[in-house]
């Protein structure tokens, strides 16, 4: 029972922290319709920046904002490459992802792993530390992750309802329409990529603080994981239409982490982890397509019966 509870804590905690990244990818992939691969670079960028700042004695909450800003800059580079230099979306992402590897090395002063063990983090000081030292113990981490994720989710939902957010959604839906409204869709794409990558970096930052270490190579497979989460979330809850995209992305991530953890518990060697991540992504992608086709067929059949 204790083992189960422990696993539940890990799944919820990591599901929600990675869920911040999933919301970022929801913005680029779903709202903006942009397959952004720079995520694999901006996630460790957030982690490394957080570790470096905390090592330098910066307040862990301020570190969160700085990491978000760092992600925004990375996203803006991807956006500029695509919009101003007309490089394809996939290629722009790969270029930024590759370049960020060097940036991350600079940030960590050439260390592959930067430990911030026993240094003040948002989980060990302030509200997080208070909860941890109370009877909550490890649940404190889960609650902290929950609080941060919910705050981000609410802010993002509010943003999507503003004029700027509405225009962002319009860019993903019909670029020509945005041009007709006298607005440059390129600028909105850059803004969307900034928000998306900012959230991804924030996710990396929060995870590094929770794990008390940052790994410069922790980005591998993040795009795949986040996309899978977005797709799973939509496949599971898309029907109801009651849930918002942001909620679906976070929930999708929790389901995804659940699958990974289960596989590990069943004795899968960690070297197969990345292969499993790809496998789950393929299943999610094909599964959601089959589901869409089936519901389309059902609609047609229902129409014929009428």
């Amino acid at each position: 029972m204790d083992i189960f509870l422990g696993l539940l804590q890990v799944v919820l905690r990591e599901g929600m922290i990675y869920g911040i990244m999933a919301m970022g990818v929801y913005i680029t992939y779903k709202v903006l319709n942009f397959a952004d691969l720079s995520v694999d670079g901006s996630f460790p960028l957030g982690a490394c920046t957080a570790a470096a700042l905390i090592t330098a004695g910066v307040d862990p909450w301020i570190a969160c904002f700085v990491c978000f800003a760092a992600g925004c800059i990375a996203g803006s580079v991807t956006g500029m490459l695509h919009v101003k230099l007309h490089i394809s979306d996939l290629m722009s992402g790969i270029l930024v992802q590759t370049a960020l590897y060097s940036v991350n090395m600079v940030v960590t002063s050439k260390k592959a792993v930067l430990s911030i063990f026993n240094m003040p983090t948002i989980f060990s000081t302030g509200l997080g530390g208070m909860m941890y030292n109370s009877a909550l113990d490890q649940w404190a981490w889960v609650i902290m992750a929950l609080i941060i994720t919910i705050v981000v989710k609410i802010l993002l939902d509010l943003y999507l309802k503003t004029r700027s957010g509405l225009l962002l959604r319009a860019v993903g839906s019909n670029e020509r329409f945005v041009v007709s409204q006298g607005k440059d869709p390129g600028n909105m794409k850059i803004i969307g990529l900034m928000i998306g990558n900012g959230l991804v970096a924030l996710s990396g930052c929060v995870l590094a603080q929770q794990k008390e270490s940052a790994d410069a190579s922790s980005g591998t497979g993040m795009v795949v994981m986040a996309l899978a989460a977005v797709i799973i979330g939509e496949a599971v809850f898309g029907r109801t239409k009651k849930l918002r995209g942001t909620t679906m992305a976070v929930t999708g991530m929790i389901i995804y982490r659940c699958c990974l953890t289960a596989a590990m518990q069943l004795g899968l060697d960690t070297i197969y982890l990345k292969a499993l991540m790809s496998g789950l992504f393929i299943i999610a992608l094909v599964g959601s397509r089959l589901k869409n086709e089936r519901s389309a067929r059902n609609v047609i059949r229902a129409a014929e019966r009428k």
Partner: peptide, 10 residues
């Protein structure tokens, strides 16, 4: 159209 698209209510 023609106005600003910032953080006003959409």
């Amino acid at each position: 159209k023609g106005g600003s698209f910032l953080l006003q209510r959409g």
